[in-house]
Design a protein around this nucleic acid. Structure first.
Length: 481
RNA sequence: GGCGCCUUCGUCAAGCGGUUAAGACACCGCCCUCUCACGGCGGGUUCAAGGGUUCGAAUCCCUUAGGCGUCACCA
């Protein structure tokens, strides 16, 4: 069997949309599952839309995601160049050849007036221009485009792995432009020439190309080339605040790989989630997969035909799972850049703090907010002292806090550890004869100023250190009515 | 508008003529617990509608509706 070769052919528009990333991932996984080649090709034939550095964004994103290309920019390969703007001579040659084969013709119509007629589409005015006329205008230096000569009757059918046979009546197809007047090919021409020349066996791309594929098929046929296998993927959708669903775009928030990374989602988690958005392994209920595992598991059978809505909730859950599986050290290191400026104390105990944070996050961007109260005591309402379950009230706080303060004041700096603090406060609890929570609740409130914190009272005391802890407790106590 | 594609819980989804219609996220309860989280246990909610075919339909066929895509010298 011939070697499987797939390609990812983005146009450099400036950022890597999640939907594009998924297409790249699937094409990559499909090739790797079959031990084939994955090619990166840059489709930059629209010079009006060209964006500087966009190619770097694509390459960097792919690399960060772990998707490597066997051929393409930076990787070389025997079918290059892999940037379409560098292949103009090739397109020109094949376009001329197609004219000879009777599958295309030169059109001298003005760019702006050709789309007339209520039915839309080009009126084929130049389709049967006499040879002498063509000759004359060429000599005259008139600018022209090359159009595909579509069959006027009949229908074209092709097979799509996901959708089965797809048939379109030829009369629906207009004589589309293959080569623009600036000599650049259009997508519909270049992708056929390149895919054939680069020996691409499976074309995996978005569903938006489903209706233009018959035009490509006609091209393959005109040249007498073997057709690749087509797989058109359903789009990734986004849910707007008003509940409406539409193709994922900027208005749905962070939708590029880069955005998500900046929000503290880990690349392996993003890849994992994106892989599951429109694909299901079927043979297992497991949902956490590394890229390596995906390479073994991937199969076109698991691809979904219907659109999938991007769900931040589930991404967050998956990311949280990845976070939890890290060692404390690894997590501490990854979380650090998201922590903002740290106090010396926090800096010193960062590993301890990070361990507390690890199971409580769905993305790293939450780190800063989670630890803000440790940097600075937030103002709070004394009603927070009241907690039914722990039988804590403002009054019990007033009774217990002074005793805890007194005991803790006697703990030396070197004994200021989570375990010791817990033991000391337990003594007070025993002496006073209250429930643990009745004492620990007010302590935690008095030094944190909030009811929900990463870590319990003694852990927070430890992190804050003796001076800061005592100072916060005293101040909070003084604020009590 | 023409043409094309799609339609199972709120979301991701399994299912390929006979199932109590999996599982996951989210949500709700309980347990654990120095708060929350983690972990454990349990719960509710789904086959777009209408016609067929069949002993039997989420699964096959048709119609309708809705969503999406495409009709560029954009990809």
């Amino acid at each position: 069997m011939e070697k499987v070769r797939t390609r990812f052919a983005p146009s450099p528009t400036g950022y890597m949309h999640i939907g594009n990333l998924r297409t790249a991932l699937y094409a990559y996984l499909f090739a790797k599952k079959e031990h084939g080649d994955f090619i990166l090709r840059i489709e930059d034939t629209d010079r009006a839309r060209y964006v500087d550095d966009a190619v770097d964004v694509i390459k960097n994103t792919l690399r960060a995601a772990g998707i490597t290309w066997d051929e393409g920019p930076d990787a070389g390969g025997e079918y290059g160049p892999y940037v379409q703007s560098e292949r103009m001579a090739i397109y020109k040659e094949y376009a001329e050849k197609l004219i000879e084969l009777g599958g295309a013709y030169r059109c001298f119509c003005d760019a702006d007036k050709k789309t007339e007629g209520d039915f839309g589409g080009y009126d084929r005015a130049c389709r049967d221009l006499p040879a002498e006329e063509v000759e004359r205008r060429l000599k005259n230096g008139d600018s022209y485009v090359i159009r595909q000569k579509m069959p006027l009757t009949g229908e074209t059918t092709y097979f799509d792995v996901l959708h089965g046979n797809i048939t379109i009546a030829n009369e629906e197809l207009e004589d589309q432009i293959l080569l623009k007047s600036d000599g650049m090919p259009t997508y519909n021409f270049a992708n056929v020439i390149d895919d054939h020349l680069m020996k691409v066996t499976h074309i995996i791309r978005g569903e938006e190309f489903i209706t233009s594929t018959p035009k490509h098929v006609l091209l393959y046929d005109a040249y007498g080339w073997e057709k690749p296998v087509f797989m058109h993927l359903a789009p990734v959708m986004g849910k707007a605040e008003d509940g409406t669903v539409s193709k994922l775009s900027k208005r749905h928030g962070a939708t590029s790989f880069e955005d998500l990374v900046n929000l503290g989602y880990l690349p392996p988690a993003i890849i994992n989630y994106v892989a599951l958005l429109g694909w299901n392994p079927k043979t297992t209920n497991e949902e956490i997969f590394s890229l390596e595992e995906l390479k073994k598991l991937f199969s076109a059978e698991g691809l979904s035909k219907s659109p999938a809505v991007f769900d931040y909730n589930k991404l967050g859950w998956l990311n949280g799972e990845y976070l939890k599986r890290m060692t404390d050290e690894e997590f501490a290191q990854k979380a650090r850049p998201f922590a903002g400026e740290l106090t010396d104390n926090l800096q010193e105990k960062w590993l301890f703090v990070a361990a507390l944070l690890k199971t409580r996050l769905t993305n790293l961007a939450q780190v800063e907010g989670e630890i803000a109260f440790l940097k600075e005591m937030p103002p709070f309402d004394e009603s927070l002292y009241a907690n039914k379950r722990n039988k804590a009230t403002i009054q019990t706080a007033k009774d217990i806090l002074p005793q805890v303060i007194e005991v803790l004041a006697g703990v030396s700096e070197s004994e200021w550890t989570n375990e010791n603090l817990y033991a000391k406060i337990s003594d007070v609890i025993e002496k006073v004869g209250v429930k643990k929570g009745a004492a620990l609740w007010p302590v935690r409130i008095s030094i944190a100023g909030k009811t929900v914190t990463p870590g319990g009272a003694t852990e927070l005391l430890y992190i804050l250190g003796k001076d800061e802890s005592l100072s916060r407790m005293k101040k909070s106590l003084a604020n009590l009515p």
